[in-house]
Simulated scan of single mutants.
Amino acid sequence: MRVLGAILAGGRSRRFGSDKAHATIDGERLIDLVARSLAAQCEAVVVCGREEDGINSIPDWPEPGHGPLGGLNAALHHAAIEGVDAVLSCGCDVPNLPTDLLRQLEQGAPAIAGEQPVVGLWPVSLALACDSYLATGQRSLYGFADHVGARRVPIEPPLANINHPSDLPDR
């Protein structure tokens, strides 16, 4: 199976107070940690919703302002054009992805990692379903996951979710 890694990074980081994608852990930016983890498991990696030097970047689809679902939709459409089978998505704020995340999720995609719908495996065939869902005015990634019957796969240890500077690990 050919898989595109997609970093959903179009948010404004309001709760964090600054650009959390560029916050660091042990001197490495969060977005770089996520990109490296996805690159080890995927054929290619894109950043959705923002321009990022050194990483192929694509705009949210159909336009900015649709939250993480707009980024996922962009990745699904980009993957379809590239002839890729699925998208492995992750927010830019989940720096501790397991090295076998793809293996854990691919046993019946679509699937999301526990209670974090930004971390998921999505067949490219869902691109039109995502378009239709967004066209109804819905923006919830949880709602879309439920709409398409995504499995919830428990991941251990639990995935980090960096929303505030205090969520960064002390090192």
Rank of each mutant, 00 (worst) to 15 (best):
M1K: 01
V3W: 00
L4K: 01
G5K: 00
A6I: 08
A6L: 06
A6N: 06
I7R: 00
I7F: 04
L8W: 00
L8D: 03
L8Y: 02
G10A: 06
G10R: 01
G11L: 01
R12C: 04
S13E: 05
R14T: 15
S18D: 14
S18N: 07
S18G: 12
D19C: 09
A21I: 07
H22G: 04
H22C: 09
A23G: 10
A23Q: 01
T24V: 12
I25C: 08
G27H: 13
G27Q: 11
R29A: 15
L30V: 08
I31M: 06
D32H: 13
V34N: 05
A35P: 03
R36V: 12
R36Y: 15
R36S: 15
S37N: 13
A40Y: 11
A40D: 15
A40N: 11
C42T: 12
A44S: 15
V45M: 05
V46G: 01
V47D: 03
G49C: 04
R50D: 08
R50V: 12
E51T: 11
E51K: 03
D53N: 10
N56P: 11
N56W: 15
S57Q: 06
I58H: 03
P59Y: 05
P59T: 08
W61G: 02
P62R: 01
P64M: 08
P64V: 11
H66C: 11
H66S: 08
G67V: 05
P68N: 14
P68F: 03
A75V: 03
H77V: 02
H78D: 11
A79I: 01
I81W: 00
G83W: 01
V84Q: 05
D85Y: 11
A86C: 09
V87I: 04
L88A: 05
C90F: 07
G91E: 02
G91N: 03
G91P: 05
C92T: 14
P95D: 10
N96M: 10
P98Y: 15
D100F: 15
L102G: 07
Q104T: 14
L105N: 04
E106W: 07
A109D: 03
A111D: 13
A111C: 08
A111H: 08
I112W: 02
G114Q: 06
E115D: 15
Q116M: 14
Q116L: 15
V119M: 04
G120L: 07
L121C: 05
L121F: 09
L121A: 05
L121G: 06
V124G: 02
S125H: 10
S125Y: 07
S125P: 09
A127S: 13
L128G: 12
A129H: 13
D131R: 00
S132Y: 11
T136A: 13
T136P: 06
Q138T: 05
R139M: 08
L141I: 14
Y142D: 14
Y142E: 12
F144N: 00
H147R: 11
V148I: 12
V148D: 02
V148T: 04
V148M: 03
R151E: 13
R151F: 12
R152D: 04
V153S: 10
E156S: 13
P157G: 02
A160Y: 06
P165Y: 10
P165Q: 06
P165G: 10
D167E: 10
D167G: 06
D167Y: 11
P169L: 09
D170G: 14
